[in-house]
Nucleic acid binder design. Structure first.
Lengths: 193, 193
DNA sequence: TCTAAACTAGACCAATTGGTTTATTTTTCT
DNA sequence: AGAAAAATAAACCAATTGGTCTAGTTTAGA
C-alpha cells in the first residue's frame, strides 16, 4: 500500500507554487507546508532545493509533452489552424489564471538559467522536446502549402513558441490578454505560405 | 560639495546587480557592499527594497529612453534598416555580456510583475515609452512603404520588442546568440511591406 | 519472521533576510 | 554663527533561509 507520501504529489505542489512565485521567492518550508510533508521526507526524496526544482521541471516537461502529443493527434483542423487553436487555448488558460503565472519553463529559464547549470540544462531539454512536437505540425503545414517554406519546421516552431513567451512580459504587467491576441493574429498572418 | 554618496550611484549598482541576479535572489546587504554604503544611508534614500527596485527601473527606463532617441536620430539608414541594426546591436551587447542578463525590464516584469503592483506599474510605463520611440521609426518605415501597413506602428513596435524578449529564454539556457540571429532574420522578413 | 532499507517526523543549526534604532557627523539655510 | 535638516554609520532585531541530525516507524524482500 506504499508509504504516506509520494514524489509525484510533492512535485505537483512544487510545480504550482514555483510557477506562480518563481524559484528564489519560494522557500522549502512553504513547499513542505502546502504539500503537508515534514522536512525529513523532503530531503529523503530530493538532494537539495536545486535538485527539487530540476525534477519539477522534468515532471512538468514530460507531462506537458504527452498533453501536446495528444492534443495535436486529436485535432481535426488543418495544420495551421491546429497550431492557431493551440495558442488560442494557451491564451485562454492564462486568462483563467488571471495572467499571473505564464509558463514554468520560461519563468525558470529566465530567472535561474544563468545561475544553475542543472536548471538551464533541464529547461533547455524539455523545451526542445516540445519544439519537436510543434515542428511536426509545422512540417505538415508546409507540406500542404499552408505555412511558408522559407524556414525549417523547427525554426517555425521555435519562432512560434519563443514568440509566445515574449508576450508573457506584457501579460504579467498589464494583466490582460490584449497583446497576446494581437501577437496571435500577427504571427499567423506572417507564417502563412 | 555634497554628501559622500548619491542616489544615482546606488541606483547604478542596483541596476547591474539586479539585472544579473533578479530581485529575490539579491539581498539589501549585497547592494550595500557593492555600493560601499552603510545601511543607514540606504534607508535614508529608499523606503524599502521594493521602493528601491522601483526607482532602479525608473532610472534605467529613463536612461535607456534617451539612448534610444539618440541612436535613432543619428541613424543614416532607412527606417527598416535602422530598426534591424538596432536589434543587431542589442544582440551584440548580450553577447558581450555572455548571454546571462537579458533586459532588466523584462526580467523584473516576469519575476515580480504579479507580486508587486508598484513594480508592474513602473515596468509597464517605462516599456510603453520605449515603444513610442520605436513606433515612430516603424511609422516612417510604413510611410516609405518599407514596412507592412497591415498593423499600426505601435503594434509593429510591440511585436518587435516583445518578440525580442521572447528570445531571451533560449539565449539564457543555451548561452548562445543563434536563436536571436534567426529571430532577427525571420521577423524582418515578416514585417517587410 | 527477521533484517535492511525506505520513509516519517520535527527539533535544531548557522547564516541571511528586510528592516529599525540610536548616535554622530556633515551640510544647508537663515 | 547657530539651528534644522540631511546623511552617515553600524549595532541590533525578529523572522526566515536551506540544510542536518537523530530517532522512530513502516515497508519490502530473503
Amino acid at each position: 500500500m506504499g508509504y504516506k507520501h509520494n514524489k509525484e504529489d510533492i512535485l505537483e505542489v512544487g510545480y504550482q507554487v514555483i510557477r506562480k512565485n518563481g524559484y528564489h521567492h519560494v522557500g522549502i518550508n512553504q513547499i513542505l507546508k502546502e504539500a503537508g510533508i515534514p522536512k525529513g521526507s523532503f530531503y529523503n526524496f530530493f538532494e537539495s532545493k536545486e535538485d527539487f526544482a530540476r525534477q519539477v521541471i522534468q515532471y512538468y516537461g514530460e507531462g506537458n509533452r504527452k498533453w501536446l502529443q495528444d492534443i495535436f493527434q486529436k485535432s481535426e483542423e488543418t495544420p495551421i489552424n491546429t497550431l492557431k487553436s493551440f495558442y488560442k487555448l494557451l491564451i485562454g488558460y492564462n486568462e483563467e489564471d488571471n495572467f499571473c503565472s505564464g509558463c514554468l519553463i520560461n519563468n525558470l529559464g529566465n530567472e535561474t538559467g544563468r545561475l544553475y547549470d542543472s536548471l538551464a540544462e533541464e529547461t533547455k531539454e524539455q523545451f526542445d522536446q516540445w519544439l519537436d512536437i510543434i515542428a511536426e505540425v509545422a512540417r505538415k503545414g508546409q507540406e500542404v502549402k499552408e505555412i511558408t517554406s522559407s524556414f525549417t519546421p523547427k525554426e517555425i516552431a521555435n519562432y512560434l513558441h519563443s514568440g509566445f513567451y515574449g508576450t508573457f512580459f506584457k501579460m504579467k504587467v498589464e494583466r490582460s490578454r490584449k497583446d497576446m491576441d494581437t501577437w496571435l493574429e500577427m504571427t499567423f498572418k506572417f507564417i502563412k505560405a
